[in-house]
Amino acid sequence: MTIQATVVKILAEKALLKPGDVKLDFSISDLGLDSLGIVEIIFALEEQFNIEIDINFNNVNSSDFDISTVQEIIKSIEKILENKNG
């Protein structure tokens, strides 16, 4: 499964949507998720990809990990994996 498909699957599961209904330009709130939902998603992504995501929910904007849209989440994951493997 591609990184994109895996991320979409995790987001869809948490949002109780079908993966096909998750659009790349969706924001977290478009997915119907609140701040607690994001905490769980970050944890699920870390577990899935075996990575560390540095994000503090008091200051989301200062993190390199962009959670503004589904597309940005995928990009952020790709970047971490590149750094990890590269």
Partner: peptide, 17 residues
């Protein structure tokens, strides 16, 4: 992910946990 790594600054604009 609500803990600060930098210190406790209640009511400060730069507070981070």
């Amino acid at each position: 992910r609500i803990m600060s790594k930098t210190g406790c600054r209640p009511f400060c604009l730069t507070r981070d946990g």
